[in-house]
Every structure is written in structure tokens, then in C-alpha cells.
């Protein structure tokens, strides 16, 4: 059981591919995140929990689905860590499972015809597999 958790944590770390141990928990990422006020687990916590290997906390979080990958966190991090990459790793871990798509394509019918293609492509890349 423990091994399985450890394995998943390691897989997440490989996907995130960012130096978690360099984080000094300054909180600049969370401070400048445009959607932090909507997040249940702030960017600095996402980095911390992955560094600690707290899998349950990470998998429960809805923050990755609020993250817009704007890279403000990564660009302002004084230590070269990318919370955005951890968010992506969490999203991928979820949607790469069978039948775990987060966005129902049927909803698109109701959308503004002016919506640029890039938004639709992005949604399918970020929310579905």
C-alpha cells in the first residue's frame, strides 16, 4: 500500500519535472496568482504537498482545474520552481485515467459562435484526454 502511494508520488514528480526541493516556501507564487482566491490548495501548498509526498491532499484538490497556466508563478519564483508544472502533473494524472474527462463536449453547443478556436483546443488539451 505504502509502496503504491510512493510510486504514484514519484510518477507525479516525474511529470511535474521541477526542482521541488529548491522551494523555500516564500509564497510569492500564491501571492501573484490571478486565480488564487478561487483555489482550495494554493500554488505554494501544491509544491509543498508534492515535496512531502502527501498524495491524498493533492488528489483531492480542485485547484489544478482553476489554474490557467499563465506562468506568473513560475516566472516570479525566486528559486526556479514551477508550481504551474505541478498543477499540470495533477491534471494529467486525473485525466489520463479511463473515462476521467473533465469537460463534456456536448456543452459546446451552447457556446458563443465567436469563441476563438484556440480556446476550444486548449480546453480539450487541459481537461480531456
Amino acid at each position: 500500500m505504502v509502496d503504491k502511494v510512493q510510486e504514484q508520488v514519484e510518477a507525479l514528480r516525474r511529470l511535474a519535472h521541477t526542482p521541488l526541493q529548491d522551494c523555500i516556501q516564500c509564497g510569492r507564487c500564491s501571492a501573484g496568482c490571478p486565480v488564487a482566491f478561487k483555489m482550495d490548495l494554493l500554488p505554494h501548498r501544491v509544491v509543498w504537498e508534492l515535496a512531502q509526498g502527501n498524495l491524498e491532499t493533492l488528489l483531492k484538490a480542485t485547484a489544478p482545474w482553476q489554474c490557467v497556466s499563465c506562468f506568473a508563478c513560475q516566472n516570479r519564483c525566486p528559486r526556479g520552481v514551477s508550481p504551474a508544472a505541478v498543477m499540470e502533473a495533477l491534471r494529467l494524472t486525473a485525466i489520463r485515467q479511463q473515462g476521467a474527462n473533465k469537460y463534456d463536449a456536448a456543452q459546446l453547443e451552447h457556446f458563443d459562435p465567436e469563441l476563438p478556436q484556440q480556446a476550444l483546443v486548449a480546453v480539450f488539451r487541459k481537461f480531456n484526454k
Partner: peptide
Amino acid sequence: NECCTGYMAVTNPGLCKQM
């Protein structure tokens, strides 16, 4: 130089409007 929330226009329009 702040994000407009991009594709959140599709999944979370409320957030997008706020930003």
C-alpha cells in the same frame, strides 16, 4: 501583463469575467 484567464472563458466564465 496579467492573464485574462484564457480558456476559462469556456469552463469558468465567472472567473473570466472577474479577471
